[in-house]
Amino acid sequence: MQGVVKVNSALNMRSGPGSNYGVIGTLRNNDKVEIIKEVDGWYEIRFNGKVGSASKSYITIVN
């Protein structure tokens, strides 16, 4: 499943599904990500070869 980031500035990509996990990357508006699965309001995603988590509130699913 594919998604597109929708933010005003930037979205942190984290090492796990929650804001208490470390930041491993930064996503910008309109970045395209691969959604692997949903976990507690977060998506596990793949972006630029990295796997991490980002809040699903800022990612829109595209077909």
Rank of each mutant, 00 (worst) to 15 (best):
G3W: 05
L27S: 00
G41L: 06
V51A: 07
V62I: 13
N8F: 12
S15V: 07
G41T: 06
Y21L: 04
V7M: 04
N12Y: 15
G18S: 07
G49Y: 04
G49T: 04
F47Y: 10
V23D: 02
M13Y: 07
V62K: 06
V33Q: 00
E34Q: 11
I61F: 06
A54I: 13
G52S: 02
I36W: 04
R28K: 13
V23A: 05
N8L: 12
I61L: 11
V4Q: 08
G3P: 02
S55H: 14
S9T: 13
S15W: 06
N12M: 14
L11N: 03
G22E: 15
I61A: 06
I35G: 00
G22D: 15
G25N: 05
K56G: 06
R14K: 06
G16S: 03
P17K: 03
L27E: 01
N48L: 09
G49E: 07
G25A: 13
G3V: 04
K50W: 08
K6H: 12
G52L: 03
L27C: 05
Q2F: 14
V62M: 11
M1F: 10
Y21S: 04
R46A: 09
G41D: 10
I36T: 06
G22V: 12
Y21I: 02
N20Y: 10
N8E: 14
S57T: 13
R46I: 14
M1A: 10
V4Y: 08
S15K: 09
N63T: 12
N12F: 15
V39P: 02
R14Y: 15
V33L: 05
S15D: 12
A10C: 15
S19R: 13
E44K: 07
K37E: 06
L27D: 01
M1S: 10
F47H: 10
R14C: 11
N12H: 15
F47G: 01
G3T: 02
F47N: 01
V39R: 07
S57W: 13
G25V: 07
N12G: 11
I61S: 04
N48K: 12
V7E: 03
V51C: 09
N30V: 01
T26I: 14
Q2N: 10
G25K: 04
I59P: 01
D40S: 08
W42P: 00
N8Y: 12
V39N: 08
K32F: 12
S55L: 15
E38G: 03
T60W: 13
Y58V: 07
A10F: 15
V51G: 05
Q2P: 09
V51F: 09
G16R: 02
V23S: 06
Y43H: 00
I35M: 02
K32A: 10
I24M: 05
V62Q: 09
V33N: 00
S55C: 15
S19W: 15
I61W: 04
I59E: 01
I59W: 01
D40Y: 08
Q2W: 15
T26L: 13
N63P: 12
S55G: 09
P17A: 06
N30H: 09
V39M: 10
V33T: 01
M13T: 02
N63Q: 12
I36H: 03
N29Q: 07
G52T: 02
I45Q: 00
T60S: 12
I35W: 01
P17Q: 04
D40N: 13
L27F: 02
E38P: 01
K37V: 06
I35H: 01
F47D: 01
A54V: 15
G25F: 10
L27Y: 00
M13R: 01
Y43S: 00
I45H: 00
K50Q: 12
Q2K: 11
A10V: 15
L11S: 05
V5I: 07
T26R: 10
T60K: 13
L11D: 03
V23P: 05
I24A: 04
N8P: 11
G18H: 05
W42T: 01
E38M: 07
N63E: 13
Y43M: 04
N8T: 13
S53K: 03
Q2G: 06
G41A: 06
V23L: 05
N29L: 08
G25L: 10
G22Y: 09
N29F: 08
V23F: 05
N20R: 10
P17N: 07
M13V: 15
N29K: 08
V5A: 03
F47A: 07
G25W: 08
Q2E: 11
I36P: 01
V51P: 05
I45A: 00
A54Q: 02
P17I: 04
G18R: 00
K32M: 13
E34V: 10
K6G: 05
E44S: 06
L27N: 00
N30S: 06
S57I: 14
A54S: 05
Y43R: 00
A10K: 13
I45K: 00
W42K: 01
G41I: 04
K37Y: 08
V51E: 07
L27H: 01
N20E: 14
N48Q: 13
G3D: 03
A10R: 13
R46V: 12
V33H: 01
I24C: 07
N63A: 13
S57M: 14
N20S: 12
L11W: 00
N48F: 07
G18L: 02
V62W: 07
S53A: 14
N63C: 13
T26G: 02
R28V: 11
V33D: 00
I35S: 00
V39G: 04
I59H: 01
I35Y: 00
G49A: 05
K6M: 10
G18N: 05
E38H: 04
D40G: 12
V39W: 10
G3K: 02
G52V: 04
L27I: 05
Y58N: 11
Y58E: 09
K6L: 09
S15F: 06
T26V: 14
K6N: 10
K32D: 03
V4R: 08
K32Q: 11
G49Q: 06
I35V: 10
R14G: 06
V62H: 08
D31V: 06
G41P: 01
N20M: 11
S53F: 15
S53L: 13
K32I: 15
G41F: 05
E44L: 14
Q2D: 08
T60F: 14
I45C: 03
S55E: 15
R28S: 10
V62C: 13
W42M: 02
K32Y: 12
D31S: 07
I45M: 03
Y58S: 10
D31G: 02
G22W: 08
Y58A: 11
I35R: 00
K50N: 09
I35T: 00
S55D: 15
A54K: 01
K37R: 14
G22M: 13
S19Q: 13
N8M: 11
K56P: 04
F47P: 00
P17G: 04
V7C: 15
P17D: 03
S9Q: 12
Y58I: 04
I61E: 04
T60M: 14
F47I: 08
S57V: 13
